[in-house]
Simulated scan of single mutants.
Amino acid sequence: MRKLILEEWVSLDGYVADREGNLDFFTRLSPEENTYSDQDQLRFLQTIDTILLGRKTYQLFADFWPTATTDQEVIADKLNGTKKMVFSNTLAVAPWGKWPDAEIVSGDAVPAIQHLKSLPGKNMVLWGSISLAQALMKENLIDEYHIQLCPVLTAGGRSLFTPEVNPKNLKLAEVRQYNTGMIFLNYQPMSS
């Protein structure tokens, strides 16, 4: 069965968005210093065949990625060429520039994700999309948590893990440290 991997960028004080709802705290890292994590991200993209996004994250991504080139972002072509699915009850179409449109999935995401996980193929990644991520966490549908711990403080904001959404019994499978100060943490649920 293919895995669903949740990848989130988290501030050092534990927030995925700042108090104003902005997600740009992790972009403060110098891109020139980030070459090692870019190469790791490119290798990671080779292991997936589907990118899952909520509506808000789709809109953020669609404003940048479809026009990005590999000169700007080493992962641009791989990310743009990978199948994308947007979970939304309000969007009718999800264009992606010159690349194929993202597929819209409406209704309850949980059975849709359960079905996707049962299909053959490579793993899937869910980026950002906090409300969707939390709904899937509640149903224990996340197989790996890739936490990109950023060396910035937001002093408040939106948390990924809450008292209601708090996966228990995670084991640390991998740690990578980058010259930007960012730390990659791979956690996997332990069997009950």
Rank of each mutant, 00 (worst) to 15 (best):
N140Q: 10
F26A: 08
W99E: 02
D143S: 02
F64I: 12
W9H: 15
G81I: 09
D77A: 14
E8T: 15
P167F: 04
A62G: 02
Y145A: 11
L170M: 09
L149A: 09
Q72A: 09
A135C: 05
A109G: 08
S129Q: 06
S191Y: 09
L4R: 01
H146S: 06
F184E: 08
I142Y: 10
Q177G: 15
I48C: 08
V10M: 15
L79N: 04
V165Y: 06
A102E: 05
D13P: 07
E144F: 09
E8V: 15
S88C: 03
N140M: 00
A173T: 10
K78C: 10
D18P: 06
D13H: 03
T162P: 11
E174R: 11
V175D: 08
Y58M: 00
K78T: 15
A68G: 09
Y178V: 10
A76C: 00
N34L: 01
K98S: 15
S30R: 12
D49P: 00
S11F: 02
V125L: 02
K168M: 07
N123C: 02
D71L: 10
K117A: 12
Y36D: 15
L4N: 02
D71I: 01
I75K: 01
A92L: 12
P100L: 03
Q188T: 15
N186Q: 14
L185W: 10
